[in-house]
């Protein structure tokens, strides 16, 4: 195994990892405002990509992307409005079950609307053969799109949560719902907005990754579980931790091909998930004092 080869694996690992980061951020946003894990997060990626693929046959790619993100956002809002908002018994167990039910419904709907075949969006620039040389490693320009988009989202979210009124209101909800409500923040609407934001980020992630990994009606699940692994690695609710966790997982997973058969590649990230949950559920980058205040 030469150095360039390892560099090649690391580079693709970073790109894949940044997709996991986007999924993890989707989890974090909803977790921060509601305290629940949205098991349908992976389905947002699939839905965004599938809608974009269908629309791109009738309109230019950029329009299809924007429209796909808007439509997925609307679906996210409807999902929250019809199913989460009016729950009779909003216990954690029921929340888990209902988001699982929703993820199945979205998946099955996709199966019947589209089909069970593998689809793929066109490359944003160039085609499947074009590649760029980065310090000896050849990568498709799509990987740069993936990296660029995730960087954009992370910077944008940081600005949104720190410097806008809406973002601050959402953060207030995450630290103390009742106090936020007393300050005049409409907590229920914040929850809807968090679902919309997660859906939009999910749809964008689904679209940029679709040319590389292709999209299938049930493709959301594996991305969802990896995204969750990343979210846990970085500490649930911590976006910057997720960034580091995503890069670690992406690189580790791609380097695992060196010593593990390809068939077990997915089992690796799952094993990391179970081990992290068993040993340090607060995540790698959370201080001990902080983690002792939370319940897992």
């Amino acid at each position: 195994m030469s150095v360039t080869q390892i560099w090649q694996y690391v580079l693709t690992g970073i790109s894949m990892g940044s997709i996991y980061v986007m999924v993890a951020i989707g989890y974090n946003i909803i977790y921060n405002t509601t305290g629940i894990i949205n098991f349908a997060q992976g389905e947002f990626l699939m839905l965004g990509a599938m809608i974009a693929i269908s629309l791109s046959t009738v309109m230019p790619l950029i329009m299809a992307l924007v429209l796909a993100i808007v439509l997925t956002t609307i679906i996210g809002a409807l999902m929250e409005f019809f199913f989460i908002r009016h729950m009779k018994k909003p216990t954690v167990l029921n929340m888990i079950i209902i988001t699982i039910g929703l993820s199945i419904m979205i998946r099955e709907a996709a199966l019947h609307i589209w089909d069970e075949k593998v689809h793929s969006l066109a490359y944003f620039t160039g085609n499947e053969l074009s590649s760029i040389n980065i310090l000896g490693a050849y990568v498709s320009p799509q990987y740069l799109w993936v990296l660029g988009m995730s960087a954009l989202i992370i910077i944008g979210l940081n600005i949104f949560f720190k410097h806008t009124t809406l973002g601050r209101a959402m953060r207030a909800c995450s630290s103390n719902k009742k106090a936020a409500w007393l300050c005049g923040i409409n907590v229920k609407n914040m929850v809807t907005i968090s679902f919309m934001l997660s859906a939009a980020i999910g749809a964008l992630a689904g679209c940029v990754i679709s040319p590389i990994t292709q999209t299938q009606y049930d493709g959301g699940t594996s991305l969802a579980i990896k995204g969750f692994t990343v979210a846990i690695l970085g500490g649930l609710g911590n976006n910057n931790g997720a960034l580091a966790g995503g890069l670690i997982l992406g690189v580790l997973e791609n380097l695992s091909i060196i010593f593990l058969p390809l068939a077990y590649k997915d089992a690796l990230s799952l094993t990391i998930l179970v081990i992290i949950l068993a040993i340090k559920p607060s995540g790698l980058f959370v201080k001990k004092v902080m983690s002792s205040l939370k319940e897992y």
């Binding site: 579980i225 692994t229 846990i232 094993t271 949950l277 319940e295 897992y296």
Partner: peptide, 19 residues
Amino acid sequence: LKGHYMAMATLGFGLIIYR
């Protein structure tokens, strides 16, 4: 673990066996 963490850990375990 509790709640979501337990759900995800058992889900992960199930998927490992499946893989």
